[in-house]
Lab assay of single mutants.
Amino acid sequence: KYFGTAKARYDFCARDRSELSLKEGDIIKILNKKGQQGWWRGEIYGRVGWFPANYVEEDYS
């Protein structure tokens, strides 16, 4: 189950295995919004990890 999707506004390079690298334009499935302050958990291309919420724009459609 996921909470919708978000589109990456910027590139983000994961610093460890718990984080999710993003490329601008990627569409991420949002799995959890209750991580550390400002971090969401998501899935993209079969990978799961945490990413900074301010790097994405949530899709409300």
Rank of each mutant, 00 (worst) to 15 (best):
1 K>T: 08
1 K>Y: 09
1 K>I: 03
1 K>D: 06
2 Y>P: 10
2 Y>A: 09
2 Y>N: 15
2 Y>T: 11
2 Y>M: 12
2 Y>E: 09
3 F>Y: 14
3 F>C: 12
4 G>L: 09
4 G>M: 11
4 G>H: 08
4 G>T: 12
5 T>G: 03
5 T>W: 10
5 T>D: 08
5 T>M: 10
5 T>A: 12
6 A>T: 01
6 A>I: 01
6 A>H: 03
7 K>L: 10
7 K>W: 06
8 A>E: 03
8 A>D: 01
8 A>H: 04
8 A>W: 00
9 R>H: 05
10 Y>E: 11
10 Y>T: 13
10 Y>G: 10
10 Y>V: 10
11 D>F: 01
11 D>Q: 07
12 F>W: 12
12 F>N: 04
12 F>E: 00
13 C>N: 15
13 C>D: 08
13 C>I: 12
15 R>W: 03
15 R>E: 04
15 R>F: 02
16 D>M: 05
16 D>R: 12
16 D>G: 12
16 D>P: 01
17 R>F: 08
17 R>M: 13
18 S>F: 14
18 S>D: 11
18 S>K: 09
18 S>N: 14
18 S>R: 11
19 E>T: 01
19 E>I: 03
19 E>Q: 12
20 L>R: 01
20 L>Q: 00
20 L>E: 01
21 S>M: 08
21 S>I: 07
21 S>W: 00
22 L>A: 05
22 L>F: 15
22 L>K: 01
22 L>S: 01
23 K>C: 09
23 K>M: 10
23 K>L: 04
23 K>Y: 09
23 K>F: 04
24 E>F: 04
24 E>H: 11
24 E>P: 12
24 E>I: 11
25 G>K: 05
25 G>M: 03
25 G>D: 05
25 G>F: 02
25 G>A: 03
26 D>T: 02
26 D>F: 00
26 D>N: 06
28 I>G: 01
29 K>Y: 09
29 K>C: 06
30 I>N: 02
31 L>P: 00
31 L>K: 07
32 N>P: 02
32 N>R: 09
32 N>Y: 11
32 N>S: 15
33 K>W: 03
33 K>Q: 05
33 K>F: 04
33 K>V: 06
35 G>H: 06
35 G>E: 11
35 G>I: 07
35 G>D: 11
36 Q>Y: 09
36 Q>A: 13
36 Q>T: 12
37 Q>M: 12
37 Q>I: 08
37 Q>D: 14
37 Q>A: 13
38 G>W: 01
39 W>A: 04
39 W>E: 02
39 W>C: 08
39 W>Q: 08
39 W>I: 06
39 W>Y: 13
40 W>Q: 01
40 W>L: 08
40 W>F: 08
40 W>V: 04
40 W>R: 00
41 R>W: 11
41 R>F: 15
41 R>P: 04
42 G>E: 02
42 G>K: 00
42 G>W: 00
43 E>F: 02
43 E>C: 07
43 E>H: 00
43 E>M: 07
44 I>A: 15
45 Y>A: 15
45 Y>W: 12
45 Y>R: 15
45 Y>I: 06
46 G>I: 02
46 G>L: 04
46 G>P: 07
47 R>P: 01
47 R>K: 13
47 R>G: 04
48 V>K: 13
48 V>L: 07
48 V>E: 13
48 V>C: 10
48 V>T: 15
49 G>P: 02
49 G>V: 01
49 G>W: 02
49 G>Q: 01
50 W>M: 07
50 W>N: 07
50 W>T: 04
50 W>P: 03
50 W>A: 04
51 F>D: 00
51 F>T: 02
51 F>M: 01
51 F>A: 00
52 P>R: 01
52 P>D: 01
52 P>N: 03
52 P>V: 02
52 P>I: 08
53 A>K: 09
54 N>T: 12
55 Y>T: 10
55 Y>R: 11
56 V>L: 04
56 V>Q: 00
56 V>F: 02
57 E>L: 10
57 E>K: 08
57 E>T: 14
57 E>A: 13
58 E>P: 10
59 D>I: 12
59 D>C: 11
59 D>N: 15
59 D>M: 13
60 Y>W: 11
60 Y>V: 15
60 Y>L: 15
61 S>W: 12
61 S>I: 10
61 S>H: 14
